[in-house]
């Protein structure tokens, strides 16, 4: 601040940025979510050209731009931890009291890992490569949190 800056009229006003949104999952996203919610199955889409199974599914392959909206394939509800962090700073947007583990989990049959909560294990015990399985939510939110979290399982 310049040394001659007069702050006598300056103050701050508390407020917020608050906007109601209606997000659309898209047709592909809707099918993914309703299948997860109603049948506890996790669906991906396969790009034959890139030889990849993508989770979450999407309409278009970003690598080759082919339409994937009909290329459904089911992937496992079990998978492997390929990366993780322990979130230790509390904030309002977080789904759990801290600390909690966010892990990148590659589901069986998928090429792209998803990010999800890893629970039922102490953060210090998490290791890359461990086998985990989905625990489905009792109450639906029509989001990826219809999987409540992942937990360790036998490989």
């Amino acid at each position: 601040m310049p040394s001659d800056f007069d702050t006598s009229d300056c103050y701050t006003i508390p407020g917020k940025l608050a906007l109601p949104y209606t997000y659309f999952a898209g047709r592909v996203g809707s099918r993914f979510i309703t299948t997860l919610r109603d049948r506890h199955k996790i669906m991906g889409v396969r790009c034959d050209h890139c030889d990849m199974v993508l989770v979450p599914p999407r309409q278009t392959c970003e690598r080759c731009l082919r339409d994937l909206s009909d290329q459904w394939c089911e992937v496992g509800t079990r998978g492997e931890v390929v990366n993780y962090t322990v979130v230790r700073y509390p904030d309002r947007h977080q789904p759990r009291p801290v600390p909690f583990v966010l892990a990148m989990i590659r589901l069986e049959g998928a090429d792209t890992p998803i990010v999800h909560l890893l629970e039922e294990i102490a953060p210090e015990q998490v290791v890359i490569g461990m086998a985990v399985e989905a625990v489905f939510a009792v109450k639906t939110t029509a989001t990826i949190r219809d999987i409540d979290h992942f937990k360790p399982c036998d490989s």
């Binding site: 979450p56 904030d91 309002r92 947007h93 966010l102 989001t143 990826i144 949190r145």
Partner: peptide
């Protein structure tokens, strides 16, 4: 109120916001 809350909004409302991702958590990974 929180820079992390702002960067949280860069994520997808169906797939990645519900698990609480923000730029700090992503950087952690």
């Amino acid at each position: 109120k929180s820079r992390n809350m702002v960067t949280h909004l860069a994520f997808d409302p169906f797939y990645t916001r519900p698990v609480g991702l923000d730029f700090t958590a992503a950087a952690g990974m």
